[in-house]
Structures are given as structure tokens and as C-alpha cells.
Amino acid sequence: MNIKEKHKIRNDGKFGKKLYSVQESYWIFYNGIRTMKYMFKAKRKKELSPKFIERIMLAVTQVNCCAICSYAHSKKALESGMNNEEIQNMLSGIIDDVPNSEVAAVMFAQHYADTRGNPTLESWQRIVEIYGISKANGIFGSICTIMIGNVYGIAWSSFFNRLRGRPDPRSNLLYEVSMILGTVLIPISLIHALISDLFKKPRIKF
């Protein structure tokens, strides 16, 4: 059994069913703000192609089950040159079409989302070993950036789907309202992230 077959079996389970709390959303935004610059830097240096970034983002979105991000990043993935079959496979947790050079990054992205932003030290060290620190930071930035989209996308889309009579079975009105009101914490999280960067606090904790 090869690594892709193992990963396909792993994703046959149901992940991303427990929604993120307001407290978790604060730290997700904080991590995203601190790391997205590395994604842009890696893209600018051509360390990460648009397809590579979209594969990472689709992998995270598949775990978190964010419908609005699935739609948005399916469109971006198509624009990056990915075909529809590969996109649909990734949204089903199947990575047979992922280039071998990108499999480790996609698996780490799944692991990061699956552990709710608490990856193992060994998994991160492996990514650094495979890709080098600059590219690894770009991968990490891509993961944290889409995590922001997922956590708020789930809450907002759940709320509007409820108004349309199609509520998300994972959610409830109290959760959706608390998450929407919780966006008032975004400026505080932003300032916190900027101060942490100023004092060179670690970007990833284990």
C-alpha cells in the first residue's frame, strides 16, 4: 500500500464535524495574520505555484467541511489550471492526482486542520526537512490563511443557509450569532499578531 492509498483510506472517516469556537477563531485569525506573508513570499519566489497553494487550501477545506470555501477555491483552482476531476477528488479526500512532490504538504495540511491547529512537532520537522524552511513557511502560511476563511466561512454560510431554510446540521443559531459577533475580536487579534511579530514570538507551537 503506497502513501496515497493510506491517505485516501484515512480520509474515508468524518472529519471537521465539530465547529470552531469563538476562542479558537481568535487564534486562527492570529496565526493567519502572522503567517500569510510567507505564503505570498513563497509565491513571489516561485517556491509555491498557484496550483500547489490551491491543493493545500482544498485539503484544509475538505477537513473543515466549509461549503463556501469549497466553492470559492474550486473556482480559483480551476483558474490555476487544475481540472475538475482533481478538484472534486480533493474535496472528497482523494489525493491520487496530487504530484508526489506535493503529497507531504497536502498531508500536513490535512493533519493541521484535523488537529485543529495543533500539529505534532515531528510532522512539522518532516515538512522542513522535505521542503526547506522557506518553502515550509510558505506551506504553513497557506494553511493558516485558508483556516481563517474556513472558520468564518462556516459560520456565515450556516447563518445565511438557515435564513434560506437549509440549516447546517452541525450548527445552531446561537453558535452562528456568537461567531458573527465574535468578529469584533479581529482587530484585537490583529494587534496581538503584530506585537508578537515585533517581539519575534514563535509562529508555530507544539
Rank of each mutant, 00 (worst) to 15 (best):
L174C: 09
G165P: 08
R162H: 11
N137W: 14
V128H: 06
K45S: 14
I33N: 11
K18A: 13
Y152M: 04
Y71I: 13
P169R: 08
Q125E: 15
I195C: 00
M82G: 02
V128K: 12
M82F: 10
G81C: 02
S157F: 13
E54N: 14
K46M: 13
A72G: 09
R34D: 06
C144F: 07
F15D: 11
H111R: 08
I146N: 12
A136R: 01
K75T: 09
I68E: 14
A104P: 05
F52Y: 15
M107K: 12
H73R: 09
A105S: 14
N161E: 13
A109L: 01
G32S: 09
I204K: 09
G138Y: 04
Q62E: 14
R126K: 13
E79I: 01
N84K: 14
E102M: 08
L48C: 02
Y30M: 00
Y152V: 07
K18F: 10
N89E: 15
H73P: 04
L58E: 06
I94S: 05
F199A: 03
I188E: 08
S158D: 13
Y26I: 12
N2R: 13
G182E: 08
I148Y: 04
F159M: 05
L48H: 02
E47L: 15
L163Y: 02
V128A: 02
R166D: 15
V60A: 07
P169W: 11
F29Y: 14
K205A: 05
Y30E: 03
K17S: 12
V151W: 07
D96P: 06
G16V: 06
I133H: 10
G93V: 04
F199D: 00
R166C: 10
A77S: 15
M90S: 07
F29G: 00
N83P: 04
L174I: 14
A113E: 07
E102L: 00
I195T: 01
N83C: 13
K41F: 11
I9V: 15
Q23P: 02
A193H: 02
A109D: 03
G32V: 01
R164W: 10
A59Q: 02
R164C: 06
D12H: 11
G13D: 13
D114Y: 08
V128T: 12
K75I: 13
Q125A: 09
G141C: 05
I68G: 03
L198V: 04
E47K: 12
I191E: 07
K46N: 15
T115Y: 00
G138Q: 00
M179F: 02
L173V: 05
S158V: 07
T61R: 04
N100W: 04
I146P: 12
Y20A: 13
V22F: 02
N150C: 08
I94M: 05
L78N: 03
R55E: 13
L174G: 03
I139G: 04
S158L: 03
S157P: 06
T61S: 10
C69R: 01
G132K: 00
N137I: 05
G117C: 07
F40E: 13
K135E: 07
K46F: 10
G13R: 13
I28M: 02
A155M: 03
H73Q: 10
A193G: 07
F29M: 09
I68C: 11
N89S: 12
Y38L: 05
N11L: 15
I146E: 15
M39V: 04
M82T: 03
